[in-house]
Write a protein that binds this DNA or RNA. Sequence first.
DNA 1: AGATGGATACCCT
DNA 2: GGGTATCCATCTG
Length: 277
Amino acid sequence: MRQKKQRLAVAEQQQSPPDMAQMPSPKEPRLGPPVTLGPQRSIYFSSPKSHPPRLGSEFFDQPAVLLAQAFLGQVLVRRLADGTELRGRIVETEAYLGPEDEAAHSRGGRQTPRNRSMFMKPGTLYVYIIYGMYFCMNVSSQGDGACVLLRALEPLGGLETMRQLRTSLRKGTSSRAVKDRELCSGPSKLCQALAIDKSFDQRDLAQDEALWLERSPLGPTRSAVVAAARVGIGQTGEWAQKPLRFYIRDSPWVSVVDREAEQENRTEQRACSDKNF
DNA sequence: AGATGGATACCCT
DNA sequence: GGGTATCCATCTG
């Protein structure tokens, strides 16, 4: 009981009410997000020179597998109600392909109130509750019912706030300090660390004021991306085996490493380079 | 390794 | 409507 209250208290503290998030308050001006929002375009912000550009809807409009790979290295930014910015580099993702994918919530074309955002336009957030107590954050991609799950971040900024969020949202009473590696190394951990909850469901990552993606100058090289089986979706079925999880090789921030897949990826690459690649 | 926790989907009156 | 099995995880011992 006490934990539940704690959880709510933190959520209220960090979370701005929807109306406040939408309307700029005249008496309390806030720093704007990296680029202007709204339908009207400005040539000033389309210039490649403007500061770290926010990734727009074109970025999200690609097939789930490509989007899952393109996410790697990009920086996710969360701005809390008090203006604090939390940032992390995406190091691990999973692709869910839509109706044909037996491991996807949208398998068989199932559409329910919960997974509605999977069918919305690319860039739409799909946040769902798992095991009754955790959140997972997905981003809709091109393809009906297809999306990408964000599984791990390398924390870059706002670590102390992340630690606080992770500590206060944890269930146990143990007051052991949360290590840096434990801040965002899992789909629900990163949601806790960035204070992302169900209220983000159906929001647009290309437009939202509290959450956005910044292009990183250096992405991982092709050989630094490991393709492995997805986590936690059972052992059976062809879809459980498919290499639809992607992570940055040797990153200490990844949630689950798959040595076997890393080995296989390497031999595949060698085979490619042998064939004059 | 085992317990946890509750929303959700799905089946059944 | 109600009952139940399941669930893309985390924490602790």
